[in-house]
Amino acid sequence: MLMPKRTKWRKQMRGRIRGEATRGNEVAFGEFGLQALEPGWVPARVIEAGRIAISRNAPEAKSWIRIFPHKSVSKKPAETRQGTGKGDVEFWCAVVKPGTIIYEVDGVTEDVAKRAFNRVAHKFPVKVRLVRRRHG
């Protein structure tokens, strides 16, 4: 699973996701992309599950992951009294804004890309859509 090699601080504040993506919002490498339509957190295991779904449903495709789980999410254990500080890091996630391109694929037809991304879409915690590269 993807996670940072090293970070300055282990635990982070939650933050707010405001506005739309102004960077990473265009299909840059492949012919088709999967674009987030809602803001949200995408855990590293979901990114990995999506990558596997693409490689199984479009094995001939060249694929790119355009997001990275930089954000650590902490959680207190179940049935724990309040206090004693912030919980341990539970998982890592990527913060996505509407418009962010999550995956890209190339070397496949639109039907194959659509089928692969449809499998991915069912795993994702945010609404997504298929977008084509903008030519010219």
């Binding site: 699973m1 996670m3 940072p4 090699k5 090293r6 970070t7 300055k8 601080w9 282990r10 596997i52 341990d88 890091v89 539970e90 998982f91």
Partner: peptide
């Protein structure tokens, strides 16, 4: 070559994995 699917026991430490701070 994809690694064989990890069992729950094997996957558990991965969730707790922390980067070196």
């Amino acid at each position: 070559v994809e690694a064989p699917a990890a069992t729950e026991d094997a996957a558990a430490p991965a969730a707790d994995a922390k980067p070196a701070s």
